[in-house]
Design a protein around this nucleic acid. Sequence first.
DNA 1: ACCTGAACACCGTTCAAGT
DNA 2: ACCTGAACACCGTTCAAGT
Lengths: 238, 238
Amino acid sequence: MTTTGQRRSPRRTEALSRERIVGASVELLDAAGEGGLTFRALSERLATGPGAIYHHVANKDELLGAAVEAVVIEAVGAPGAQGTPEDAIRAVATGLFDAADAHPWLAPQLAGRIARSQWGTVVPRLFESLGRQIRALGAPEGAWFTATSALLHYILGAAGQNATNTEKAHALGPDTDRAEFLDAVSTAWERLDPDDYPFTRAVADQMRGHDDREQFLAGVDLMLAGIASLPPSGGTAT
Amino acid sequence: MTTTGQRRSPRRTEALSRERIVGASVELLDAAGEGGLTFRALSERLATGPGAIYHHVANKDELLGAAVEAVVIEAVGAPGAQGTPEDAIRAVATGLFDAADAHPWLAPQLAGRIARSQWGTVVPRLFESLGRQIRALGAPEGAWFTATSALLHYILGAAGQNATNTEKAHALGPDTDRAEFLDAVSTAWERLDPDDYPFTRAVADQMRGHDDREQFLAGVDLMLAGIASLPPSGGTAT
DNA sequence: ACCTGAACACCGTTCAAGT
DNA sequence: ACCTGAACACCGTTCAAGT
């Protein structure tokens, strides 16, 4: 009957909750990569035993999925995008691009989950927000599904690749920046066998000195151009 | 080089080799999924101890990478494609599509490896064979890299998704075929909240009764249309 | 109801010892 | 050089026991 709330207050500093567990998981993943997320490391960080976590989360796969969702939802947020459909699509794309860059474990995780159709709530969300804009763009109805999933696959794939470039550049040493790393990659490409890899060699120089974000958005625009070029209706004849 | 040679024949049924190990790994992955590949299960199948494998393979990650490569190389094979560049691209695409369908672990593995830039020898190979055709298509040089990686990301993403559909359909029971499974998915989509998911609901009906391979190739054609619509040169202005 | 933490059934990997 | 297989240092997960 003392103090403010007179319900027996928890003695522990903070009660365990799914939210707190997911938050700590994201921190662990950011700090130590995918291998860093362990029920033991997690329970130590939360000052409990490993078994306690199972009261809030079914298993590790669900926990990883929840971490993915938390990060993606924070990144793309509310649909409140203004401007043209193209702008709205670019906003979703850059949101994922930046999130993948900030959380290097994100893109491989998300790509793997999509490939396994473990969609959770986040894939339908992304699909929906991209698809609405494709519809607004006036794409023929028969192409909606194809165009939306092509766009989503590209965004995730390219965002992930960029994130890994960042990571590998850092791994080469704190002084090494992206440009230096990309230069190393394109030099390696230029050393490929001219008979087996003529195209890759020809393209190697394009990697050098190109802004990744710009390259990424050029890819998005390429897809938009493809969509815009579709005949106005009934593409999927049978 | 078979038994004919009279060099002291090994007493064991067959000497261990990287090739045999990779072959057994693919069998294990096909039979029991990604979790089925274990150094213990593998060594049992090969009638050795787990330690023996390390004489031919550095670690599990390399082993998985080798399994991916073996399957992909068998699928897309030699570049000897004839016909138009479009046909050659479709040949690579359907090769990967079928391989992903036959080996459900392939697409998630490959997607994850690309996202982590663990390219091995197979990603450059795919990149090269797709890129050559994009060049042959007359795409502007500034778009080669972007167009090729967009195409590769789409192919892997969509092929993986299809493979999972096959798997999940089988999991529902041997009698359940794809059409039945896709029907269940689109019914679920139609039950989504009309306020939050208007687009996904609108698209749900398209899933029903559509041939997956056809849908997949429609996506490839969409990308080709985007590439064809590019201005003839110097797209990447700065 | 929630938490504890020892215990279980596995892993990948190593390494002395064999041939 | 190649193989053996016990041993090591981990995992995710469970579960009796506590509060």
